[in-house]
């Protein structure tokens, strides 16, 4: 496989959770998401229950992928930040360590400047955590939950 598998463990998840919770408060944002570049939702904080998070994750990843494609054509490494301004909602999208995407949705109760500032700080912390996760995922001694799964288990999933 070209890219290593993403595995999320309790310790790192709690650290990520703390960062996104704090970002919601510090940036006075409505919702904060962390999504991997393939469109899988990793963590959410704020008023996320009102949003179709699975769809948002997939579309944001598509958006980042398309922007990355444009960057390549222009011989840029990556466009790491995107901002979309709406009438009521605004969305700030930040690529973290070229691995995951930090999405902040906010309204006019806060400012783009504050969001940018807080995102920058959060990005530094997140970078370190995902670096550790990557190392863990590449550790050959790390067990996957699939190690003990039998062919029968897989077959049973499809017996309807």
């Amino acid at each position: 496989m070209a890219s290593p598998q993403m595995v999320m463990y309790e310790e790192e998840f709690n650290q990520i959770r703390a960062i996104v919770d704090r970002l919601v408060r510090d940036a006075n944002a409505q919702v904060v998401f962390i999504i991997d570049k393939n469109g899988q939702l990793i963590a959410a904080a704020g008023e996320s229950e009102q949003i179709d998070t699975t769809s948002l994750a997939s579309l944001t990843a598509g958006n980042i992928a398309a922007t990355g494609g444009i960057a390549k054509i222009l011989r840029e490494n990556e466009f790491t930040t995107q901002f979309h301004e709406g009438e009521r909602a605004n969305i700030h999208i930040q690529l973290v360590g070229n691995r995951v995407i930090l999405v902040v949705i906010f309204n006019n109760q806060t400012s783009l400047g504050l969001v940018r500032l807080r995102v920058k700080k959060a990005t530094e912390h997140l970078n370190g955590i995902f670096e550790i996760l990557l190392q863990k995922a590449q550790d050959p001694n790390q067990q996957t939950p699939f190690a003990e799964i039998t062919d029968d288990d897989i077959d049973n999933l499809f017996n309807d």
Partner: peptide
């Protein structure tokens, strides 16, 4: 690239 989440 599959994504395994031990928490959920």
């Amino acid at each position: 690239m599959s994504f395994i989440n031990y928490l959920s």
